[in-house]
Amino acid sequence: MSYLGQQLVNGLTLGGVYALIALGYTLVYGVLQILNFAHGDVYMVGAFIGFFVMVGLGGPLKPSVPVAVMILIMFLVAMLGTGLLGIVIERFAYRPLRNSTRIAPLISALGVSILLQNAALLLFSANIRSYDTSSYISSTLGFSFADITIDGVRLFVLVLSIALMFGLARWVNGTQVGRAMRAIAYDRDAAVMMGIDVDKVIRWTFFVSAALAGAAGVMNGLLLRGVSNGMGLVPGLKGFTAAVVGGIGSIPGAMLGGLLLGVVESLAQGYLSTNFSDTITFALLIVVMLLKPNGLLGKRAIVKA
């Protein structure tokens, strides 16, 4: 039982990161009906920003500020930086193609993805950078219950990812921009006629979705340590899959899809095969899609009816 419990803890933590990435996909798709395949690379940029902020604050061995403050600044700067990057991507890669064919923004997204990966290669080199988390957060920090251990970093990542998800849900439902976002998702033409500044709302959408990816990137760095220019590809694909399984365009669906993906992956590794865990995970997800083509919570989506 403790074995199952430990694998669930592992899976939920990983799933939290996937869910944050999935939310970015779902927000952009909900408003613009485009698949932002550069999203995984925005996540990579967020991880790098967090890393360089850490280095700027004295590095993992001798931080010049308290560790909690350092981590807070890492998250804030990474989210702000990736948020602004999201706005730039929207302005130059998607807005000119807004009234183009459906395939054009997709190709543009792939181009941005390759551009970001190679820009990171040029700027930061191909070296794998390490957050070296154990230097400032002890690996023995955490607690055990019934032989299930949850360490400090995992607990922090899990709690923060859930907090960000619920924060996003409140923002979408409780703010003027959030309501405008839902209105555009429902009927863009009507929203324009009602005086909603579509460009401004789309900018906000990209800012928020990219900021979430930035937060996920820092979480990845804290949790798995390694950061490199190619790190966004697989998590990006998994985040996209989570969004589709949950019902793309649906915020609760993205959360559920991400957590489910993480748990299934962890259980597949724990009980079936570590080597083929991705195969098992994606096979199961195909089954889900066959049974629920709109995703698990697709009916509740904020997509255009």
């Binding site: 694998q7 933590t13 790190m231 697989v234 724990g270 095969s273 570590t274």
Partner: peptide, 17 residues
């Protein structure tokens, strides 16, 4: 012997084994 995929990123589940 635990076989793992080269693309695997999180080894928590493996360590649990």
């Amino acid at each position: 012997n635990i076989a793992v995929n080269e693309k695997n990123a999180d080894y928590a589940a493996v360590v649990t084994r």
